[in-house]
């Protein structure tokens, strides 16, 4: 995982009111997050696009079980 992966998790924690600081890891499962819903999904797409300048579709996001699955969709993370 690149530094951007860490940046993504910290920014998502900051932006999304249902999350606490320093709680997300690549192993975190989306469906285990309390209050995870469509608004949280939208926020995730937004932070992902901001950090990686890369868009993930709603369908792609739905297929991701963990934060790590999502991160692996970024072209920059595939090189690692």
């Amino acid at each position: 995982m690149t530094d951007k992966g860490t940046k993504f998790m910290r920014e998502l924690e900051e932006t999304l009111d249902i999350l606490q600081e320093d709680t997300l890891t690549p192993e975190t499962r989306f469906r285990d997050l309390p209050g995870w819903d469509s608004l949280a999904s939208l926020t995730t797409l937004s932070v992902f696009d901001e950090v990686y300048s890369h868009q993930v579709s709603g369908e792609e996001l739905k297929k991701c079980e963990t934060i790590g699955d999502l991160l692996s969709l970024a072209p920059e993370e595939k090189g690692e």
Partner: peptide, 12 residues
């Protein structure tokens, strides 16, 4: 309305 697609479209 597919909110996520519309969001992505708008920002794209």
């Amino acid at each position: 309305m597919d909110g996520m697609e519309v969001f992505n479209f708008t920002l794209r």
